[in-house]
Simulated scan of single mutants.
Amino acid sequence: MDLYEYQGKEVLRSYGIPTLRGRVVETPEEAARVAGEFGGTVAIKAQVLTGGRGKAGGIRVVGGPEEAARAAREILGMDIRGHRVRRVLVESGAEIARELYLSITVDRREKKPLILFSTEGGVDIEEVAERNPEAIVRLHVNPLLGLLPYQVRRITFASGLEGGTAKGLGRVLNGLYEAFCGSDASLVEINPLAVTEEGEVIALDAKVTIDDSSLYRHEDLAGLRDVEAEDPQERRAKEVGLQYVKLDGDVGILGNGAGLVMSTLDVVAQAGGSPANFCDVGGGADAEKIATALEIVVSNERVRSVFFNIFGGITRGDEVAKGLLAALDRVDVELPIVVRLDGTNAEEGRELLAQNAPENVHTEETMLDAARRTVELAQGR
């Protein structure tokens, strides 16, 4: 679960990380009033669950209430990467001397938290890694030992900061690691982490992603979820217990098992197509679950064809075929559907589909052949 910037900053403040004064508003009039209270220069920042706000014009630095109202009026309602801005954060200004980058994420290969630090803040870390990889410090933390003093010193030494400012960076790093562990986050990122003219170290931005599977331990964080901002297909899938992630392509994908679905995404890409989603219906899915999954996948207007990929281990191919036929009786799908059945009773399943399925349903024996045909149908060939 991603948090808005203002929510992420609330989490960081609870672990002792300094931020600027800020208040979330939903109207230009409120923005003007808060700007007047803060006085001087303020920033008007779109609150959306995506990056690229600055490049899209979703962040403005203004000099007073009237400019704040005008900026808020222009930003509210803006579409940023498919996310509509419904509120803005009005934040007080500061004299910034330097901008740094600091984050902690999960390195799944090493099975450890990974600290990333760079003296080049305010830009995407991927851009820094490509242009100047030596500018990034990477440190793994042993989860049994926690963040150790020598690792904090390694980061502060790399920063080039001295005295009280270096100690301030150390306190931020310790607080960020505590926030990462304490909130069961998969990512905590401050970009930029600012050093002010007075030597203070302040989080100018905050990106926090909480592991969904841990939310039962964090009722306060679970209550921060903005249901209205979620993708409608992903929200519907979550309600019915399906594993679904929306992507940018036009080939809808369903499969039984997360590993198989991930492989299906790769094979579709190999065949020259672009996956529209990840959707795992699970083992032993009945007609009701298959029908619901189909409804969700085809409700995405970008989808031009559907690849239904099933490997029968415990699940029998003929039972899957019966479930799919029953689902098609319930769901009116006009898009072409390619079904690949393999494993237990796969031949019987394909025979059932050949005899009883609508004309828009096609069967293939191999995953690669099915991927190629699905891509061809999506492209109108």
Rank of each mutant, 00 (worst) to 15 (best):
Met1Ala: 08
Asp2Leu: 07
Leu3Gln: 11
Arg13Gln: 12
Gly16His: 08
Ile17Leu: 13
Gly22Leu: 12
Thr27Ile: 09
Glu30Asn: 12
Ala32Asp: 02
Ala43Trp: 06
Ile44Pro: 02
Gln47Gly: 10
Arg60Gln: 15
Glu66Leu: 10
Ala68Val: 02
Ala69Thr: 10
Glu74Leu: 03
Leu76Ala: 04
His83Lys: 14
Glu91Gly: 14
Val106Glu: 06
Arg109Phe: 13
Lys112Thr: 00
Thr119Arg: 12
Glu130Phe: 01
Pro133Thr: 02
Glu134Met: 00
Ala135Gln: 04
Leu144Arg: 00
Gly146Asn: 06
Gly146Ile: 03
Gln151Ala: 09
Arg154Asp: 09
Gly163Arg: 01
Arg171Ile: 08
Glu178His: 15
Ala179Ile: 11
Gly182Val: 12
Leu187Phe: 03
Ala194Lys: 02
Gly199Ile: 09
Val201Ala: 10
Ala203Cys: 13
Ala203His: 03
Ile210Tyr: 04
Asp212Phe: 09
Ser214Val: 09
Ala222Met: 03
Val227Ile: 15
Ala229Thr: 14
Glu239Val: 04
Ala258Cys: 15
Gly259Lys: 06
Met262Asn: 07
Gly273Pro: 00
Ser274Met: 14
Ala276Leu: 06
Cys279Asp: 04
Asp280Cys: 10
Gly282Ala: 14
Ala285Tyr: 05
Asp286Thr: 07
Ala291Pro: 09
Ile296Asn: 00
Glu301Pro: 05
Phe308Lys: 09
Phe308Asn: 01
Phe308Ser: 11
Asn309Ser: 13
Gly312Gln: 03
Gly317Asp: 05
Asp318Tyr: 06
Val339Ser: 08
Asp342Ile: 02
Thr366Lys: 06
Ala371Pro: 04
Arg372Asp: 04
Arg373Pro: 05
Ala378His: 03
